[in-house]
């Protein structure tokens, strides 16, 4: 519609949207403001915290909570691992399912897609058992008895989740939109499949791989349920999502923290949410593409 709406209508629209946006943003802005106050000031202004402002809470969390750098490091390790491997798998499978003709193709693809309907908990309980009873790991004998296997150790955080069907589907869809002329030309020049994948296709796949990079980063930064199930007794390997939740719940002693301190809890929440929000603001395009990737193309 090329005609602009009348002023009164535009004002109504903006009013509704601004009110809605305030509701959506309020908890986050409240947390950020509260993180800059002291407990005494926080109680003095109940409606909205007036920043003192003090960075004391941040200093306590970032420097004296000794496990904090460790949790960030653990999370970064998982982010790199769960970007490189699932991306490789997705590119290879995407190519296989979109470009190659072979017997059993739709069966293999169907088996992979079938898991998307199965809720996570159906895997998680048996996976826990499987990792706990893994033969010859963590004090287990050949039959998987006697120890605790991979539970509370790194393999529990790294083994499940390498084949991610969502990304396989996304890459297959992307491959079908690329004309095969490029590949045929490269084959005439004598390139093999590996060279075609890395030299011809990879540069074209950068935007969709960015979607993968960004979604994996946010999901792993926020990851909570599987680490809670598989490594909750070993703070040394916790990712940030579990670690910060435990700090907020008061389950982990924080040196330098004095008494009842709500602003500190708001500080932890702020530290948890700022990286993902910044990532979103810088790479909004890829986020929106990723959210829409399935709905529009699928």
């Amino acid at each position: 519609m090329n005609v602009r709406k009348p002023l009164s209508q535009r004002v109504t629209l903006h009013t509704i949207l601004i009110l809605g946006s305030i509701v959506m943003a309020f908890p986050l802005v409240f947390a950020a403001a509260a993180s800059l106050t002291t407990q005494a000031d926080f109680i003095r202004s109940p409606w909205f915290p007036k920043p003192t402002p003090t960075l004391l809470n941040y200093r306590v969390l970032l420097f004296s909570a000794d496990k904090f750098p460790r949790w960030v490091f653990n999370t970064l390790v998982r982010i790199v691992w769960f970007i490189v491997l699932p991306a490789t798998v997705a590119v290879l499978c995407g190519y296989v399912f979109a470009r190659l003709r072979f017997r059993g193709r739709s069966l293999a693809f169907g088996i992979l897609l079938g898991s998307m309907l199965v809720p996570g908990i159906v895997y998680q309980v048996p996976l826990f058992v499987m990792l706990a009873r893994w033969p010859l790991a963590g004090g287990n004998n050949l039959l998987g008895q006697g120890g605790s296997g991979f539970i509370n150790h790194w393999p529990a955080l790294l083994l499940p989740g390498i084949v991610n069907v969502y990304y396989i589907f996304l890459l297959r869809q992307t491959f079908t939109t690329i004309p095969s002329d490029y590949e045929e030309a490269a084959r005439l020049d004598g390139a093999n499949t590996f060279q075609i994948l890395t030299r011809v296709y990879l540069p074209m796949l950068v935007p969709v791989l960015m979607v993968l990079v960004i979604f994996q980063s946010v999901n792993l930064w926020n990851d909570y349920v599987w680490p809670l199930i598989s490594v909750s007794a070993n703070p040394q390997v916790w990712p940030i999502g579990l670690g910060l939740q435990r700090v907020m719940a008061g389950a982990v002693p924080v040196p330098g923290l004095q008494g009842f301190n709500q602003p500190f809890i708001f500080t932890v929440a702020t530290v948890s949410m700022v990286p993902t929000i910044l990532l979103f603001l810088f790479f909004q395009r890829y986020f929106l593409e990723g959210v829409q990737g399935f709905g529009v193309k699928g």
Binding site: N222, L244, S272
Partner: peptide
């Protein structure tokens, strides 16, 4: 809000 951690 979707980008924040459900647990936190």
């Amino acid at each position: 809000p979707t980008l924040t951690s459900a647990a936190i």
